[in-house]
């Protein structure tokens, strides 16, 4: 029974700690964008998609020639920096990636799969990787769905070279 009692006290303590300064239940500021009565109208999901995030831009990218590489890269920028000397984020920094050996950015903790892959990032290798990362290197941490459109991949690769000054 001793332990129950302690567990009980402990949880109570934790709960108290969680409450801290006892925040008021009411908000300090409340912006009502749509009134609850607006529920009858079709949800705003019907509105045209905004262009403010990487995924949105990627999805909105038209798969015709003249794809903006920087815009296409935005989906990669969610995890990767590309500026010279910028720190790695969720994924490694990609400055100068093209032509490098895979898994060679110092200080980034790669998956064993990509460390063992033994590939060099030629355009062809990068293209097949971007098309289907998990298929190309099973076990890679970059488990995104891949870029299905070949022109879009080419635009991304071109941008990665441009942004690296090569």
């Amino acid at each position: 029974m001793r332990n129950i009692s302690r567990a009980a006290l402990l949880v109570l303590t934790a709960a108290l700690a969680a409450c801290g300064s006892e925040p008021a239940a009411e908000p300090a500021e409340q912006i009502v964008v749509r009134e609850p009565s607006d529920l009858a109208i079709p949800p705003a999901m019907n509105e045209s998609p905004t262009q403010d995030t990487a995924l949105a831009e990627a999805a909105a990218t038209d798969a015709v020639t003249g794809i903006d590489g920087e815009a296409a890269f935005a989906q990669c920028a969610v995890c990767h920096s590309i500026g010279k000397g910028e720190p790695s984020d969720i994924g490694p920094n990609l400055h100068g990636i093209m032509g490098q050996k895979a898994a060679s950015v110092a200080g980034y903790s790669y998956s064993p799969a990509i460390e063992a892959a033994g590939i060099t990032w030629t355009e062809a290798e990068m293209d097949s990787f971007l098309a289907d990362p998990l298929e190309k290197i099973p076990g890679t941490k970059m488990a995104s769905g891949g870029v299905t459109d070949g022109d879009e991949r080419a635009a991304i690769i071109a941008y990665m070279m441009d942004a690296s000054g090569s």
Binding site: L55, A58, A59, V78, D132, L134, E135, A143, S144, G145, G146, T148
Partner: peptide, 16 residues
């Protein structure tokens, strides 16, 4: 799975 291949659905837009 998308066409039998595993994808992380949290990071793959529905358009794909």
């Amino acid at each position: 799975h998308l066409d039998g291949k595993p994808v992380r659905s949290c990071s793959t837009p529905i358009s794909r």
